[in-house]
Structures are given as C-alpha cells and as structure tokens.
C-alpha cells in the first residue's frame, strides 16, 4: 500500500522534473484525496481496487485528519476530502467566501458496539448512562439495573480515532475516567471482557464475530438508546443502523469543492455503488442507508 503511494509520488515528481507539460497534465488527472485518519485505509483500498479496474485514473490518498482534508477543500488543494465529522458552520462560511460550494457524500458508516461479559444481566443502556460510566461517574452496575459489581472499564489508547469518537459523541467532550484500562486494540478489549464479569468495552462491529460468522461466546452486545424515551437498538440490527437509530454510529463523509468532474464523480460512484460498498463491509464498516444513497446521487449530478 505504502509502496504504491511512494511509487506514485515519485513518478509524479519525476514527471514534474522531466517536463512541465506532462507534469501539469498528470497533476490535473491525478485525483488527490486527503483527510480523516480513520478513513485513510478504507479509501486507500477502495482506490486500489478502482485503479485495478481503471488503469488510466491515478488516485493518491493521504491522511492528516478530518480538519486537514476540510481545509484542503477550502483552499482547493485537493479533489476529495475524507472527514469523519461534519463541517463546522465556520468552515462552510469560509468555503463560500472563497467561492467554493462543497458537496458532501456519505460513503460508509462507522459503528461501535458496546460489549459486556455474558454473565452481566444488563441488556441496554442510554448514551447518557454510557457516558457516565466511561467518565467514572457510575462505578457500580447496580446503578443501571445490573448486578452489585464494580464497573471495570476497557477502552482504547488516546492515539486511537475510536477513543476520540467515544469522547466526543458519548462522553460529551469530557475526560475519560483515569481508571479505564487502555488496551492495545479491539482484540485485547474482547479478551478482557471475556474474563471480566464487571467489564465493559467498545469495539468495532467486525471484531465481534468468530471464524464461523457468529457472535463470540462469552460476550454480550448491549442495545443502546438515544435517551430514556427512545427504544434501544443493537448495532447488529442493520435496518436500525441504516435508519440512523443506533446512537454510537457516525457517517464517514467525503466532500468535493463544488460539482465533481467526470473522473472524481466516477470514483465516488464506484465507492457508493455495490462494488465499493462490498469493500466497505469487508473492511469492517457499515454500508450506507437508502436516505444517504439518494442524497449522494443527487449531489453527484
């Protein structure tokens, strides 16, 4: 993956040196994608598969964070921005001032499942309760209708995008409890929950299944409700995730500066089409719902 990237960059550089005309032609043709680190692997793989089918359409993908991608669109230094958060009003205003009218596409849905040990009697939580648990305000499962057991927190390390996502969307931008055990990856969190009857953890949905495609023995996936009044949904309920009813999910976006040109729109069409969505699913993300699909197609025109 990286080798390809380096090769492409060096080829691009060589082209620039060799002949300014060829360089410029390539520059125009090469699709530049920048932004979210959560999405960089997914989009890289999408780009590789797309390039394998369309050899004449080089794509370069790089990370840097959602903010980097968004400002690159505003400054018109890239063709597509990956962003895992929505644009702030300030950013949209700034783009319009510069004459850029960004268009947004949802290419996948990132979904976190909240898991506990199967011996835990708790079945569902509200996002408020979940936040309070991770902030360290609820210390015993009794407080949320569970057994009289101390809550044992499992989470990711601060360099993980998932850590930030939980902090922003569930903890309400407040501090994690210092008692949270910070694990090296999704698999380690699951190992911990399997043993720990008081444990709670968050992992990507793809990690829940064993090699037969069944939910791993010993863990229980909690249903999560937006608030007290709303019903709780499981992240495994595809229809609920598609409707946007599962609260610990976020759309993964791409933005273009204005109406995408033919090359860019062909790539986006591939991403949101059946082939691209199959890759999205394979990489552990969720496919987009009907509403997003409709909006995407409107924006492509």
């Amino acid at each position: 993956m990286n080798v390809k990237k380096i090769l492409m960059i060096s080829l691009f550089g060589f082209g620039l040196i060799a002949s300014p005309h060829i360089g410029q032609a390539q520059k125009r043709k090469m699709i530049q994608i920048k932004g979210s680190d959560t999405m960089v692997n997914l989009v890289q793989i999408l780009a590789e598969e797309y390039m394998a089918k369309n050899p004449g359409a080089p794509i370069a993908v790089s990370g840097g964070g959602s903010g980097t991608g968004i400002s690159a669109i505003i400054n018109q230094t890239c063709d597509i921005a990956n962003h895992s958060r929505e644009w702030r009003q300030k950013e949209i205003d700034l783009a319009w001032e510069k004459g850029v009218k960004p268009r947004f596409f949802v290419i996948a849905v990132d979904c976190l499942s909240i898991i506990v040990n199967e011996k835990n009697t708790v079945e569902k939580l509200t996002t408020f309760e979940l936040g309070a648990i991770y902030r360290g305000e609820i210390k015993n499962w009794k407080a949320v209708g569970g057994p009289d057991k101390v809550v044992s927190l499992y989470g990711r390390q601060s360099n993980s995008g998932t850590y930030v996502f939980m902090q922003e969307h569930v903890l309400g931008n407040r501090n994690y409890s210092a008692d949270m055990k910070e694990m090296n990856g999704n698999a380690q969190i699951i190992e911990g929950i399997l043993q720990d009857e008081g444990g709670i953890g968050y992992v990507g949905v793809g990690y829940l299944f064993d090699k037969d495609g069944k939910i791993r023995k010993g863990i229980k996936v909690l249903r999560i409700a937006k608030d007290n009044k709303s019903p709780a949904f499981s992240p495994l309920d595809k229809a609920a995730v598609d409707r946007g009813d599962y609260p610990v999910a976020r759309p993964l976006y791409q933005a273009t500066p204005g109406r995408p040109n033919a090359a860019v729109s062909a790539f986006i069409a591939f991403e949101i089409g059946p082939e691209g969505q199959k890759i999205v699913e394979r990489e552990g993300f969720f496919t987009i719902g009907a509403k997003d699909k409709e909006q995407n197609e409107k924006n492509l025109r």
Partner: peptide, 20 residues
Amino acid sequence: VLMATGNARSFPHGFLDSIR
C-alpha cells in the same frame, strides 16, 4: 508491562490496581 498491566492512568493503591 504495556500488554499486561492495563495502562490505567489512575494513581495506584495496591498491586491489584491497573497501572501505567
């Protein structure tokens, strides 16, 4: 230690606490 001690940032109160 990174793998086996849990990496919790809280102040340790005993050998059965997760530490970093």
